[in-house]
């Protein structure tokens, strides 16, 4: 029982790191980016290659995942995404579905379609037994890393200059420009950071979520749930939504395996009907 809770929290925190970039682009910038999972997949595969094939240590693999996904994010943002920010939601949907299809086929071509795993150092395998609760060392690491990232993000958003620039840009681009904020750069950096975190999450999560070319499609709905169910008023809302989703999914699959993901989808639909702005939104109208 407590093990499920523990696994659920680890899973939820992982989802948060994967989805927090989307929480900003979709939740705050109101850009429907269905291709967010592609960046996570990119990070995952980079880590896979450098760790398994090139023999880098696991920690460096994670760094490589973050850097490469962030670089890819920055590149695509500057060359492609900027042209789509101001288009209709339908255009954004079509554009990002296109990117998903391309990434799925491209990874399939380069890496093959089978599921692959990143080699994890022996020190991280096995589990601790604390008061009879089996806690996997690896999941503990996930919780630690994701916890640090969450706190850092919250601090960065609230108390750094860049954080306030981002909040201003999201609130009203014109006003922000008037205040001397370079909105384009702010968005690009944010996008790159979000993609980088997704990449990191993809690498960290390869062990739990698996890594195969249809990753972006398989988890798209989960990322979207985190953002829409959580609501987009702050970074804490998607965080709580992630944890709830993580626990709910793990518990659902454990107790009612027959229904599988059915429970999660149904809960999502119900939440969206009752609270279209999200569970934790503070009535901020969009």
């Amino acid at each position: 029982m407590l093990t499920i809770l523990f696994d659920g929290i680890a899973y939820g925190m992982l989802l948060f790191v994967l989805a927090c970039g989307l929480a900003v682009t979709l939740g705050l910038m109101n850009f429907v980016n269905l291709a967010h999972g592609s960046f996570a997949m990119a990070g995952g595969y980079v880590a896979l290659v450098v760790v398994n094939d090139m023999g880098w240590p696991f920690s460096l693999g994670l760094v490589a995942a973050f850097v490469s996904a962030a670089a890819l994010g920055a590149l695509l943002e500057r060359t492609l995404y900027v042209h789509v920010y101001n288009k209709s939601h339908l255009d954004q949907v079509l554009f990002t579905i296109g990117l998903v299809f391309m990434s799925v086929a491209a990874v399939d071509y380069v890496m093959g379609s089978q599921q692959q795993f990143i080699r994890i150092p022996a020190a991280l395998q096995g589990q601790f037994d604390v008061f009879g609760i089996g806690m996997s060392k690896y999941r503990l690491l996930i919780i630690a890393i994701c916890g640090v990232i969450t706190i850092a993000l919250q601090l960065a958003l609230l108390s750094t200059r860049f954080g306030s620039q981002l909040r201003a840009s999201v609130d009203d681009q014109r006003v922000a420009r008037g205040l001397g904020v370079n909105v384009g750069v702010v968005f690009a950096v944010t996008f790159a950071l979000g993609s980088g975190l997704a990449g990191l999450g993809g690498a960290l999560g390869a062990e739990i979520l698996g890594l195969d070319p249809i990753f972006p499609l398989k988890y798209m709905i989960y990322f979207l749930i985190v953002v829409t169910v959580g609501g987009s008023s702050s970074i804490t809302a998607p965080f709580f939504a992630s944890i709830l989703l993580g626990i709910g999914d793990v518990a659902g699959k454990y107790y009612v395996p027959k229904l599988g993901a059915f429970v999660i989808y149904t809960i999502m639909i119900i939440v969206l009907i009752i609270r279209p702005q999200g569970l934790f939104a503070h009535g901020r109208a969009r």
Binding site: L80, L94, A105, Y109
Partner: peptide
């Protein structure tokens, strides 16, 4: 043969960038 989805994706991206 296996990767036609890539081109479908590319078509979507181009359609949006050029303008529907």
């Amino acid at each position: 043969p296996q990767y036609w989805q890539f081109w479908i994706g590319l078509i979507l991206v181009i359609i949006v960038l050029v303008g529907r």
